[in-house]
């Protein structure tokens, strides 16, 4: 398993200050409003709330996939406002890993190729090392025998684990997961939760996961609850 990127242990890894996202429709829709949040290195944060409460929107803002209407996001201590599309993409590639509700693997590529995709896009290591690392990550997630399989040759749980492996490809500082167990059966969902938990406990990876599952939320270090785009509760597990 690859180690998480070295980060300063004291300061927050991700910091959101009065974060607001309003969709400029005819009648403006507020997705996230005045959200203040600081996530430290090695934390496992679960974001909960009813549907339409702004959980995923917050995650996309933290992951630099969307841009806030107001407020600021600091990633690894550096402000992200004013970065152009390329710089944001580069930062995402090197620092963040995404896992979505659906695996979203490229269907024509094998599990190994899907995991290698972010590495190849970043281009920091040679082809042989990429392959070796991809296979090592897959093996650490129990997918050693599935490296050469395409997504349609695997089960839902296996695909989601490959998606986690892809998120880990560039040894990101933070993994952002949007309902990673939402489309899985209970057993597969538990497997994916254990996987993320292990990443935090064993490798010190930071995980921010949006979830509807009370069990998933209960297993996290910290639970942030959102209602109508606002963070209404921020509870740390003792």
């Amino acid at each position: 398993m690859s180690a998480a990127a070295p980060v300063a242990p004291t300061g927050p890894l991700i910091e959101a200050v009065r974060l607001t996202r309003v969709l400029p429709e005819t009648v403006p829709v507020t997705l996230v409003e005045d959200a203040d949040l600081a996530v430290a290195a090695g934390e496992f944060v679960a974001v909960t709330g009813p549907s339409g409460s702004g959980k995923s929107s917050l995650l996309y803002l933290l992951g630099l996939l969307d841009q806030p209407s107001r407020g600021e996001i600091r990633l690894l201590g550096a402000p992200t406002a004013g970065l152009d599309g390329d710089a944001r993409a580069r930062l995402r590639l090197a620092t963040l890993g995404f896992v979505f509700q659906f695996h979203f693997l490229l269907p024509e590529f094998t599990a190994r190729d899907n995991v290698m995709l972010p590495m190849r896009a970043l281009g920091r290591v040679g082809a042989a090392e990429m392959r070796e690392r991809a296979e090592a990550i897959l093996a650490s997630l129990g997918l050693a025998d599935h490296a050469g399989k395409r997504p349609d040759q695997m089960s839902g749980g296996q695909r989601q684990r490959v998606a986690v492996a892809r998120a880990l490809a560039n040894a990101p500082a933070v993994i952002l997961a949007d309902e990673p167990t939402g489309s899985l059966d209970t057993r597969s969902g538990e497997q994916v939760f254990r996987l993320l938990r292990d990443l935090v406990d064993r490798d010190g990876t930071t995980v921010v996961a949006v979830t509807h599952s009370p069990e998933f939320a209960a297993g996290a270090d910290r639970r942030i609850h959102m209602v109508d785009g606002r963070i209404v509760d921020d509870e740390r597990r003792p």
């Binding site: 599309g85 993409a89 995402r92 995404f98 979203f104």
Partner: peptide, 16 residues
Amino acid sequence: ARDIAIMKSLGLRERT
């Protein structure tokens, strides 16, 4: 379209 979105979310640039 979905693959494009995923590639972009992973960090592939627009020009790529």
